[in-house]
Design a protein around this nucleic acid. Structure first.
Length: 732
DNA sequence: ATGGACAATGTTTTT
DNA sequence: CATTGTCCAT
């Protein structure tokens, strides 16, 4: 069989049309679960193996690293190592690479660092201070958001439209913000795109070079592009015009980040000769789920009608469930999951719990922890947001780029080494006088400690600075010859970070474990060099850290769920104010986006979908009565089944034996686990719980087929546990 | 310079 | 309510 036949044999006619489309612009409108990733990867394989296009001349762009990795492995699966030379990555990563290569045309050095969200906020605060604006009246976060939006629309400070006083504040902060970034030789996320576009617009010969090189450009999730990304693509495609974009306007959920689904319309206008292919057949969900999805999205005005169909069959009706409050919500989900696993209707890894805001994961986590059941959580307390992780990265960034003052101020006194505000200020003043950055001055001092005397920084504080400078010199020497790992180890040793962070408490051990995790990442990035390592850690998101290995239920936001699928999905907190979020109420566009978000969640489900709302919800502190989501009104009654509260139903006991096998690790590690026919815990017993530690039984009773035990833990106080699930050990 | 105690303040989604 | 920042005492 020819490769071509091999490639297309599992594709439906529309998919084939897309994969084998002739050169020129192509717009693929793909509904959820219609195989769009497949179309993209097969298209790449088709170009390489059938059309004999050099991988070097192909660029494929995604939004997340995870999507990029996924695509990469699938392309490799299709064409083996014929993929060598292929440019495949996120918008940000691809731009970062171009900007390093073309730094000579740009106002920063090629060893620039990428500032993350926290750093960016730090720069805004710094700018506010420089402009004598106070943070109370000028909150940094909204100002930063305004700056970011401006950048996404390619508005420079000098063009920033000023209508109110507030705009003027933003404009001035923006101006200062950009100056500070350049002083630090740093770029923020938006800059990566902005500078790339400016590079192409201001240096036609550079644009020409890249436009000629990339004969084919393929774009995933096109509806999420912002203006900067759209223009970037247009420039890149300006020579060959072979641009193949795949998207679904109904799944556009990043408006707040500057994404503009109207880029799809713009594309049709800018490329009037574009072939348009519609992928409508759904291979993921049952028809029952698709019907609900359509009921929700069809209320969306002004959109191209799309009919979702599947040959997977009707399936079970979608379940709608009302609960008393958000605690009951968590309990309902947990009970349902346990029940379905026991009945062998699903495996633990089949479940996803989706919610609007990260904060909603907390009660879920508590419920799972209390039951002693494993789960995985996407995002939320971000690994790269951890203090210890940021500290070590700041050290390495400083070594890579001594001008990075933000990193320097972060760690110059971490761990405490007697360099306080006063000393740092003196250093900074001197540096300014010598027109050096503080980091460069420290390097000087490290090389020649006597220089300090000239500066009037003698004595203990001077010695402290000299010691730090000495390290910097040593580390700088190391970065040329050694891997990121060796450098990191040397830093950790010199600053004795472990004794600072690991104070013997459980939290300390945790922190140190995070440092070791970062060390592992450095180990894996050995051959990337320091620059590559830093770029990688700056551009990975926490969404990317979802490992697919552990077969346990997943908790994630609706945003994080895009592009994923699960056999059983729970969408939680379907209340007005949560979904749609209250901050969207007064904006029609935003309300439509909330609706699309709901739609994205619904269409993640393959077999079962549970929609849950509660009567009361704790905003912060106190529970308040809330209304069901207005989106629920749009689902016809006959499409749903309202489930009655029935937590543990009959028949559970007889099936409980299989529970062990299905519910994996948690069950196996519980030595005393058993089904309660009689009470085994009694008041006064000393028990041990793997998470909570030592405790004493206060009370216990049989409930249904299980035993409910109230335990007082030394560290946490009272907890109510279910005996069959909590890994309780009785101590003699 | 450092660490603790208190207050204020604020909750959407993230490359 | 839980985090973050500010002030104050050592």
């Amino acid at each position: 069989m020819t490769f071509r036949m091999e490639l297309i044999k599992n594709l439906n006619p529309q998919q084939q049309q897309a994969v084998m489309a002739e050169a020129g612009p192509v717009l693929v409108l793909a509904g959820p679960g219609s195989g769009k990733t497949r179309v993209l990867t097969q298209r790449i394989a088709f170009l390489i193996r059938v059309k004999k296009v050099k991988p070097y001349s192909i660029m494929a762009v995604t939004f997340t690293n995870k999507a990029a990795r996924e695509m990469e492995s699938r392309v490799v699966g299709l064409v083996g190592d014929y993929n060598r030379g292929l440019t495949l990555g996120t918008f940000h990563a691809i731009c970062a690479r171009i900007l390093r290569r073309e730094a000579e045309h740009l106002p920063f050095e090629s060893n620039y660092v990428i500032f993350d969200e926290d750093d960016q906020l730090g720069v805004v605060k710094h700018a506010l201070r420089d402009l004598n604006l106070d943070e109370k009246n000028n909150r940094p976060a909204p100002i930063h958001a305004a700056i970011s939006n401006a950048k996404n629309e390619l508005l420079l400070p000098e063009n920033f439209p000023v209508q109110h006083y507030r705009d003027e504040v933003v404009r001035r902060v923006y101006e200062r913000y950009q100056q500070l970034l350049l002083v630090n030789n740093a770029l923020d996320f938006d800059d990566l795109l902005l500078w790339a576009v400016r590079l192409f617009e201001e240096h036609p010969e550079v644009r020409e070079k890249y436009a000629r090189r990339f004969e084919h450009i393929l774009v995933d999730e096109f509806q999420d592009t912002n203006i900067a990304q759209y223009l970037l693509l247009k420039h890149l495609a300006s020579f060959h015009r072979n641009i193949f974009v795949v998207g679904d306007t109904d799944q556009s959920i990043y408006r707040w980040r500057g994404a503009d689904y109207r880029n799809v319309l713009r594309f049709e206008k800018d490329f009037p000769d574009a072939q348009v292919v519609m992928l409508e057949q759904n291979y993921r969900s049952t028809q029952a789920i698709l019907d609900v999805a359509m009921a929700v999205i069809n209320r969306h005005p002004q959109r191209r009608p799309k009919y979702l169909f599947t040959d997977r069959g009707a399936g079970l009706r979608v379940t709608l469930r009302e609960v008393y409050d958000d605690r009951a919500e968590a309990a309902f989900v947990l009970d349902s999951i346990v029940d379905m696993v026991r009945r062998e209707q699903a495996q633990p890894g089949d479940f996803a719990m989706m919610y609007r805001t990260n904060a909603q994961s907390r009660l879920l986590e508590e419920a799972f922890l209390a039951a002693g059941l494993p789960y995985k959580l996407v995002g939320a307390q971000r690994f790269y947001g951890r203090r210890e992780v940021k500290d070590i990265i700041a050290y390495m960034r400083l070594v890579h780029n001594p001008n990075d003052e933000l990193s320097l101020t972060r760690i110059i006194n971490v761990p405490p080494r007697g360099i306080g505000d006063k000393t740092y200020l003196a250093l900074r003043t001197l540096a300014q006088k010598l027109s050096l950055s503080p980091g460069e001055l420290l390097l000087e001092i490290g090389r020649e400690p006597e220089a300090l005397n000239l500066a009037g920084l003698p004595g203990r504080s001077g010695a402290n600075l000299a010691r730090f400078g000495g390290w910097q010199v040593k580390w700088a020497a190391l970065k040329a010859s050694a891997s990121p790992l060796v450098l990191m180890d040397q830093i950790l040793e010199d600053i004795d970070y472990r004794s600072y962070i690991d104070d013997g408490s459980e939290e300390g051990a945790d922190r140190w474990a995070n440092v070791m995790e970062l060390r592992r990442i450095a180990f894996e990035a050995q051959d990337k060099g320091l620059e590559g390592f830093l770029e990688q850690v700056a551009l990975v998101s926490d969404q990317d850290t979802l490992e697919t290995t552990a077969k346990v239920p997943t908790m994630l936001t609706l945003h994080a769920a895009k592009g994923l699928e699960f056999p059983v999905v729970f969408i939680l907190g379907l209340n007005d104010g949560t979904l749609p979020h209250s901050r969207s109420f007064d904006d029609i566009e935003e309300m439509m986006e909330e609706r699309r978000l709901f739609y994205v969640g619904i269409t993640r489900a393959k077999d079962r979908l549970f929609l849950v709302y509660s009567q009361n919800r704790s905003a912060y502190g106190y529970p308040e009565p809330v209304d069901p989501s207005r989106f629920l009104d749009d689902i016809p009654y006959e499409l749903i089944e309202e489930e009655q509260p029935a937590v543990l139903r009959r028949g559970v006991k007889s099936e409980a034996a299989s529970h062990d096998a299905l519910w994996g690790a948690a069950a196996r590690t519980s030595p005393k686990r058993q089904i309660a026919n009689q009470q085994i815990y009694h008041p006064g017993m000393n028990v041990f719980h793997p998470t909570y530690g030592d405790g004493m039984v206060l009370n216990s009773r049989l409930e249904g087929d299980d035993e409910v035990v109230d335990v007082f833990f030394a560290d946490l106080g009272m907890k109510r546990l279910v005996a069959s699930l909590a890994r309780l050990e009785i101590k003699t």
